[in-house]
Design a protein around this nucleic acid. Structure first.
Length: 795
DNA sequence: CAGTGAGCGAGCTTCCGCTTGACTT
């Protein structure tokens, strides 16, 4: 009898399942979606109740052809795509393409790829759930409408001619970045003074140790100084000691989003790097599926984990836990991300090792005991305190100045033995100082003061987003899915809405009042503030597009738009509403907005007036031009042509000052004549350069185009010219072919392409004739060199 | 490699979510 055909989405999964199911089934994969909306005319017949027009994309033709031919030879076809909205739709598309009846074709699901789960699933087949399929179709069609209606609006209204795009997910992602930037720009830091007292006491071994106690924060420098003066000659007495137990609980096993976050914080990986490595681990069978929003672990996995904990650390470290998803939009088609075999502590592949070990540790920790702590809080009374209460004449007897020293001791490490989750910058508060151990203290003990300081501290704005913290935010808002977090970030970077870069901090003075040897002294120190590494910054393009979309399509840009339509998709999935009705309710007002915008909206300029040019009296403005953000003196309607200058890439239309703008007009600078030609310095598409005698010489980082002198510029011209001559072996002027000397030997350059010389011709490259050179070019073109992908050792 | 900046019109672009290889550089 012919085998049955079982179709899953992922080929790696297919292999595993085939082993489990044995001889009755042939298991094949369809590699995700096999059909999509046609691109022409949106692929939707809007007048005909939004009927979708599906096609098999070119890159899926091969898979579809193969599945068709196998299906023909097979017994029954079983559909085992993922148990979520998209998976259900894939099953339906398979029915359509393979000519199966969705009402009778067997559909099974598993949340985990384990023997018991798969064997039991096979005993309980159902059929395709058309309501769920319709919810997916509604999702797909809505996204297509939004994307393919909004993007062309941008093409019409933006002067920049990039391939601009807009969509339900990407546009909100850019908005998140844009708004954070504006919060930071508008932030005004407020300072206060933190009181820190350093005391000494004997530790258990009898050694003198120093510890810190903190006092009430002082709002102003005056208060801080008064406070310290009031402490002159004071005694410090321990008045209270409290010991409280505490505990720490492990984090849930990894989902895609939390894996991306932790790999970013602990290993410094970008989200795409994390996903590439995770994919490798998955394909080699080391971990479970890496695109998941579920924190669930299978029973078999829980057993293996607890067994591993027991044998490695002892039974008292075991604490089995079931985690629940916080996120309502989670569709939980898979397990959490975990090692397939808990007794594999590491992997061979050096690239993947750190990520694997992170997954292994997190998985272990999730089933381990709480860490137990002991927190000690000691109150220290300042003898002079009551005299320094807020104001004289106060009647409150409770006003006593005191200091608080706190310490923490780990009593039982529990899960901390293997793993501690890191936190994002924004979640770290000032109170999170390093809480070390306190020496043993007794009530009424007098403490000698080493010194007391009032240190000025400033409030800080929220930090800019990293790729991973943006993913976290998107997930919280229910926007995007595990399979799209990394691609969404790539899209907004590629479109130029957002940039990933570092920002240097700026130096800032802060004040310290120091009480030592009964004298109060004022010091001023410097700190670096606002430095950020590998953060997401909105570009001017991102800012103006966001403003535009918010103005005309505020509903789609709303942070809760996705959550709202998800509720409607759910109603479609439950059969409560019809998908075409839902789309129609969305489309009609949306289409009106689109038409209104095309009709009435002005072109997007993001214009900002900076002031008047003292030389001409004309207006100086910053705005978006065809080639990006720029500053402009005068207007195109003026008789005299306006002057233009491009912004530096760290500058922004929104924040550039008048002075900074005027500075930009100092280029191009003519430094004078050299060898009868002008030496002109400017900044071009590829950075600063010197132009001389129709040739261009790049300026290295060591020179500033605004200040470089004639005497500095001319040697650069001479040197670079010499270096170029050094490299040139022969030039065929007419054919625009050069024979050049490179670091790997002589080569031929024609246009942008390079051709390596064959070994036997390398020694006398200078003697090559035009015919020989042309022959080599043809030869290399016919047999292009094969590039061997570089592999790291150990893989 | 190193320019440009207005507007028109041809011809093109564009979404989100599911999966991996097949391609260059």
């Amino acid at each position: 009898m012919a085998k049955n055909l079982l179709i899953v989405e992922s080929p790696a999964k297919a292999k595993t399942i085939e082993k489990i199911l044995g001889d009755d089934f042939e298991v094949k994969s369809c590699y995700g979606h096999i059909r999509d909306l046609e691109k022409d005319d949106m692929g939707i017949d809007i007048k005909n109740n939004y009927q979708p027009r599906y096609i098999v994309p070119e890159d899926k033709e091969k898979v579809v052809k193969e599945l068709k031919s196998i299906a023909k030879k097979s017994g029954e076809v079983w559909l085992a795509t993922d148990e979520d909205r998209e998976g259900e739709a894939i099953s339906w598309h398979l029915c359509e393409v393979l000519g199966l009846d969705p009402e009778t074709t067997k559909r099974i699901v598993f949340h985990e790829i384990t023997k018991p789960a798969i064997q039991s699933a096979v005993t309980r087949p159902r059929t395709v759930d058309m309501n769920l399929v319709n919810a997916q179709q509604a999702r797909r069609i809505l996204d297509r409408i939004v994307g393919f209606e909004l993007s062309p609006v941008l093409w019409r209204k933006m002067s920049m001619k990039n391939n601009l795009s807009a969509g339900r997910v990407q546009s909100v992602a850019v908005r998140i970045i844009a708004e954070r930037e504006r919060e930071i720009n508008a932030f005004v830091p407020v300072s206060s003074f933190k009181i820190e007292a350093l005391f000494t006491a004997k530790d258990l071994a009898g050694k003198q140790v120093t510890f810190t106690a903190e006092g009430k924060k002082q709002a102003s420098a005056e208060n801080a100084e008064t406070f310290l003066n009031g402490c002159k000659g004071a005694d410090y007495t321990v008045t209270d000691i409290q010991v409280k137990p505490g505990k720490k609980t492990p984090a849930a096993p990894f989902t895609t989003s939390t894996l991306q976050q932790e790999a970013s914080r602990k290993l410094g990986y970008s989200v795409s790097r994390t996903m590439i490595l995770a994919q490798k681990l998955y394909e080699s069978g080391k971990i479970t599926y890496m695109r998941t929003d579920s924190v669930n672990l299978s029973e078999t996995a829980m057993d293996a984990i607890t067994k591993q904990i027991g044998s490695q650390y002892g039974d008292k470290y075991i604490q089995p836990r079931k985690y629940k998803n916080k996120n309502e939009s989670a569709q939980e088609a898979h397990e959490a991300i975990r090692p397939t075999y808990m007794d594999s502590l590491t992997v061979e592949d050096a690239d993947c090792r750190r990520l694997y070990e992170l997954i292994w540790k997190r998985t272990m920790a999730s089933q381990m005991a709480d860490a137990e702590l002991e927190k000690t809080i000691a109150k220290i009374l300042i003898s002079t305190g009551s005299n320094d209460g807020p104001s004289a004449g106060t009647t409150l007897s409770s006003i006593r100045e005191e200091l608080t020293a706190s310490g923490e001791v780990l009593k039982f490490d529990g899960f901390l033995k293997v793993y501690m989750e890191d936190r994002d910058e924004e979640d770290i508060t000032e109170e999170d100082g390093q809480e070390g151990m306190l020496p043993p203290l007794a009530i009424q003990q007098k403490l000698p003061l080493k010194e007391m300081r009032a240190v000025e501290r400033f409030t800080r704005p929220q930090p800019r987003y990293t790729e991973a913290s943006l993913v976290k935010k998107l997930e919280e808002l229910g926007i995007g899915r595990p399979s799209t977090y990394a691609p969404t970030i790539s899209t907004i970077l590629k479109r130029g809405y957002v940039e990933k870069r570092d920002k240097e901090g700026i130096k800032r003075d802060f004040r310290i009042f120091q009480l030592k040897d009964n004298k109060v002294e004022k010091l001023v120190e410097q700190e670096n503030t606002g430095a950020e590494k590998s953060k997401l910054f909105p570009t001017d393009l991102g800012l103006v597009v966001t403003d535009f979309l918010k103005q005309y399509f505020d509903d789609i840009m709303d942070y809760h738009f996705t959550a709202r339509i998800e509720e409607e998709f759910d109603e479609v999935a439950q059969g409560k509403i019809l998908w075409n009705k839902m789309i129609d309710d969305f489309y009609n007002p949306f289409k009106k907005d689109v038409e209104n915008t095309i009709e009435n909206a002005e072109r997007i300029k993001g214009e900002r007036e900076l002031g008047l040019d003292p030389a001409s009296g004309k207006k100086v403005i910053a705005r978006m031009g065809r080639y990006g953000p720029m500053v402009q003196i005068g207007d195109v309607s003026d008789e005299e042509k306006p002057r233009f200058a491009k912004l530096k890439n760290t500058q922004s239309i929104e924040t550039i000052s008048f002075d900074e703008a005027m500075e930009l007009f100092r280029l191009p600078r003519n430094l004078g004549q050299f060898e009868d030609s002008d030496v002109v310095v400017n900044i071009g598409r590829f950075g600063p350069y010197i132009a001389h005698d129709k040739k261009f010489y790049s300026l290295g980082k060591e020179y500033d185009p605004y200040s470089i002198t004639f005497d500095e510029a001319t040697p650069i011209i001479v040197e670079k010219r010499a270096a170029k001559e050094e490299r040139t072996i022969k030039i065929f002027e007419k054919e625009k072919i050069q024979v050049l000397r490179g670091p790997y030997g002589p080569y031929i350059k024609q246009g942008l392409r390079n051709y390596k010389l064959p070994k036997e011709k390398q020694d006398n490259a200078a003697d090559l004739s035009l015919e020989e050179v042309k022959a080599i070019i043809e030869e290399v073109k016919a047999n292009p060199p094969k590039r061997v992908p570089r592999r790291k050792k150990g893989s």
